Computed example of a mutant assay.
Amino acid sequence: MKKIEQALLKFFGEKYESYMLNPLTVKNIDLEDTLYEEVTDIGVLSIFSELTYLNISGTGIGNITPLKKLKKLQILYADFCKITDIEPLAELYELRELDLSAPLDSITTIEPLRDLKNLEKLYIPDHQIQTLKPILNLNKLQILSVSRTDIPIDEIKEFKLLHPNCEVWY
């Protein structure tokens, strides 16, 4: 059994087999801090196509490619992970909340988020991001956390002017 499947067994408990046979019934998965060893393959998560909430915080996951199939995902918590490429999130148009805080590795661009028009909360502190330009058109943002990034203060101020209803943490 793969490490990710062990975590799902722990999360689902006695309903594990039922959910694995009927993955469309699963809407929420919370694996926070359940994977104490590095997980390299989370491919099994792609079968949960009706998922709206996923928490992989504290798992150390780096490759999130399988998540691109989770088109109904609205909330993704992935803090304390090793994610460097967020391109798999580019077509998750239902995403409302994304937390990539406290990275164990760093993303350098938020370009893949440019078309996520439903995004309301974005937590990307401590990453080597240098610009907010890709997300200037995300008008539903209510919270943006960019503390300890490489984004120039003038650009942050410009963002705040363009989005007066968005609380910006920097």
Rank of each mutant, 00 (worst) to 15 (best):
I124V: 10
S147F: 08
T131I: 04
L100W: 02
I75W: 09
C81K: 02
F80D: 06
K15Q: 13
L138N: 05
P66S: 00
L100Q: 02
T34S: 08
L113E: 05
F12C: 04
I124L: 04
T84H: 08
L95C: 09
Y77D: 07
I135K: 00
L113Y: 09
L119M: 07
I42Q: 08
I153H: 13
N63V: 14
L162R: 13
L144T: 13
Q142Y: 02
L21M: 14
E167F: 08
K117E: 14
T149S: 03
L51I: 15
K82R: 15
K15P: 10
T25N: 11
K82C: 14
K140N: 15
G60L: 03
F80S: 07
F12R: 03
K140G: 15
I107K: 05
P23I: 01
K160H: 04
I56L: 05
M20D: 03
K121C: 11
E91I: 09
E167W: 07
K133M: 05
S145V: 14
A102F: 11
R114W: 10
L116I: 12
L122R: 10
I129T: 04
P125Q: 04
L76Y: 09
I156D: 14
I86H: 11
L144E: 04
L73I: 12
I129N: 00
K160I: 12
K68Q: 13
D41H: 12
G62C: 04
W169P: 05
I4R: 06
L138T: 07
F80Q: 03
D33W: 11
R96C: 12
N22P: 08
T84E: 12
E87R: 11
I110T: 13
E158R: 01
N137Y: 06
H163K: 10
C81I: 06
G43R: 01
E111Y: 12
K2W: 13
T108P: 07
N22S: 10
L92D: 07
M1C: 14
D126T: 08
I129W: 01
F80T: 06
G58H: 05
S49R: 11
L119Q: 04
L98I: 14
A102W: 07
I156R: 11
D126P: 01
Y19W: 09
L144G: 08
K3S: 14
P134W: 00
L21A: 15
Q6E: 15
L89Y: 05
I86L: 11
L9C: 09
P23Q: 01
G43K: 02
Q130N: 10
W169E: 11
K15M: 08
P103V: 00
A102T: 11
D99A: 10
E155I: 04
S147R: 12
K68I: 07
I107N: 07
Y93V: 05
A7Q: 08
S46E: 11
L122V: 12
L98Q: 09
F48A: 05
F12Y: 12
D115E: 15
I29T: 03
L51H: 12
M1Q: 13
D105F: 01
I143Y: 15
D150M: 05
E91M: 08
N28R: 13
L136Y: 12
L45W: 06
I83Q: 04
